[in-house]
Nucleic acid binder design. Structure first.
Length: 487
RNA sequence: GCUCCGGUAGUAUAGUCCGGUUAAGUAUGACGGCCUCUCGAGCCGCCGACCCGGGUUCGAAUCCCGGCCGGAGCACCA
């Protein structure tokens, strides 16, 4: 990070508008801000930027959901601030800068102003004296001016190459009755705009390093004028590029719209790349952190691949996930000539025997055993084919029926299966197990039967359904509901 | 259109500031093999990139110019 030694203390902040839950796109700012703060033994702040009760209106639920997301990510903050609590501070600074003659209250029509700014011409309001400006300022506050009738502008260079920087707007009037703020209601009718509130807060909070998306580059240009007026020094700023991920929209408006209209079930719909959704699918926060560290803060745009996230996640959860059998699209398998009862004792984790075993017994009633296997293995279902049921026995297919497959016992040992190079498949014995639904990333549902041992699973446990994939247990009652993470 | 920013393998990233011991490292992925009673993990091998064209230089992914492509901003949004 640049110029670290210039600051006594490194302070970073994450400053979301609480108008949506957090998603992968926010992860970059969070992880980098948090990570750098900790790396330099500094502070990491959370600041809610909720100063637009009209267009990008915040909603109460998101203040909490965002904090939950942050905690889950493991990026705890040292202090938090809410801009809607700080209006007096902004008013005070507005007056200061008006008194200093570095800002003015403009009553021009927005279109007129824009036309003049485009031509580098000033508007008549720019030459008002501080006293006149203060008078207008009070009229903004007391309701004499209505929405859009007056606005505080920060003086800049009217010849700045980017017209959008010229005398930018700092505080505007919002009809407090028609647009009450979710937290402070109709208490205020003048609200600061992003550059004013953010700029003042960054200085007052002694932020040393700002890390945010490159869409804010021109905002830095704007704010630098204000910093100069106040005699402040602008923090170090790093602007990273846009982050996208294959197949999922990271646009807040798309997410909010989709949830509102029912295209998505909720904030944790598996099709979304929100933290809530990733959490529900069993993506570890560590995996997200590692991915973000990989990506870093460069300014080029990035299109992430889910495979990259999955690879990180797999590395983390493979160690901890116990293994179970889940028969997707079950198909009945009858095996005759089973010589005796067979007990299977299977490791919960193949590489960690100390985790224990799951036990399954297979009854052979008059030499017949009945099991379920997955139709996903149908390419193996050919007459005469020899197949091994993992940890149990080997059989040979005799007849393939519509509903069931008839087979004959071949042998029991694994060695024999190897000799035959018989493929290995998983299974569940008939009349045991628990119905299981796995919600896939596209929100479709894979149905089947999970083995008996799964009845003891607890929500939030991450397991691997062998030969099917890693899933997170969501609910266990008369059936098991799980969310698919990845293979 | 105007103002900025950027372009290294399928994906992501290192190297670019201070040009040469790297004709490009790493991870993931694809492919092949080994191992394993999972299509998971592990191990080995292999595939694959400096946007294009000029220029500067003994030498350029690295510096300069032009082009092309991509992105952001151009709000009384954040």
């Amino acid at each position: 990070m640049p110029n670290v030694d210039r600051y006594e203390q490194i302070v970073t902040r994450f400053a979301p508008n609480p108008d949506c839950v957090l998603h992968l796109g926010s992860a970059r700012a969070i992880v980098l801000c948090y990570g750098y703060a900790k790396m330099y033994d500094g502070l990491f702040y959370l600041r809610f930027e909720d100063t637009d009760p009209r267009l990008k209106r915040s909603a109460l639920q998101f203040y909490d959901l965002i904090q939950e997301d942050l905690r889950w990510l493991g990026c705890g903050w040292d202090s938090d601030f809410i801009q809607s609590d700080r209006l007096p501070i902004y008013y005070e600074h507005a007056e200061m800068i008006l008194v200093d003659g570095n800002a003015y209250v403009c009553t021009c029509k927005p279109g007129d102003f824009r036309e003049r700014a485009l031509a580098s011409h000033q508007c008549p309001c720019r030459d008002l004296t501080p006293d006149e400006n203060l008078l207008r300022w009070r009229r903004m506050l007391d309701g004499t001016y209505k929405e859009r009738e007056a606005i505080v502008r920060i003086k800049t260079n009217l010849n700045h190459p980017n017209p959008a920087v010229r005398d930018w707007p700092a505080l505007r009037i919002i009809d407090a009755k028609r647009h009450p703020h979710p937290r402070v209601g109709s208490k205020y009718r003048v609200w600061p705009l992003y550059n004013f509130a953010c700029g003042i807060d960054d200085h007052l909070m002694a932020i040393s390093h700002i890390i945010r998306g490159k869409e804010h580059l021109t905002n830095q240009r704007r704010q630098e004028y204000m910093y100069k007026h106040f005699g402040w020094r602008y923090p170090e700023a790093i602007h990273y590029g846009r982050l996208k991920i294959e197949g999922a929209s990271l646009s807040k408006s798309v997410i909010v719209e989709g949830v509102k209209k029912g295209a998505f079930k909720d904030w944790d719909d598996p099709r979304l790349a929100t933290f809530a959704a990733l959490r529900r699918r069993g993506i570890s926060p560590d995996a997200i952190r590692r991915l973000m560290v990989d990506v870093g803060p460069k300014t080029a745009d990035v299109v992430l691949s889910w495979e990259n996230l999955y690879a990180h996640n797999r590395k983390i959860i493979d160690q901890m996930a116990n293994r179970y059998f889940f028969v997707h699209n079950p198909r009945r398998l009858n095996i005759k000539d089973v010589p005796h009862r067979i007990s299977a004792h299977i490791h919960l984790h193949p590489d960690q025997p100390q985790r224990g075993l799951r036990h399954v017994e297979i009854e052979s009633k008059k030499g017949r055993a009945s099991l379920l296997i997955s139709n996903d293995d149908k390419k193996l279902f050919q007459k005469g084919k020899k197949i091994r049921l993992m940890e149990l026995l080997n059989f040979e297919i005799e007849k393939i029926g519509e509903r069931k497959i008839d087979a004959v016992f071949h042998s029991q040992s694994y060695e024999e299966a190897k000799k035959l190079s018989a493929p290995l498949i998983h299974w569940v014995t008939s009349d045991t197990g628990i119905p299981c639904e796995v919600v896939m990333p596209d929100a479709s549902v894979a149905r089947g039967i999970a083995e008996d041992a799964c009845k003891k699973l607890r929500p939030s446990e991450i397991i691997q359904l062998e030969r099917f994939g890693f899933v997170r247990v969501d609910r266990v009652d008369e059936k098991l509901t799980a969310y698919f993470a990845h293979r």
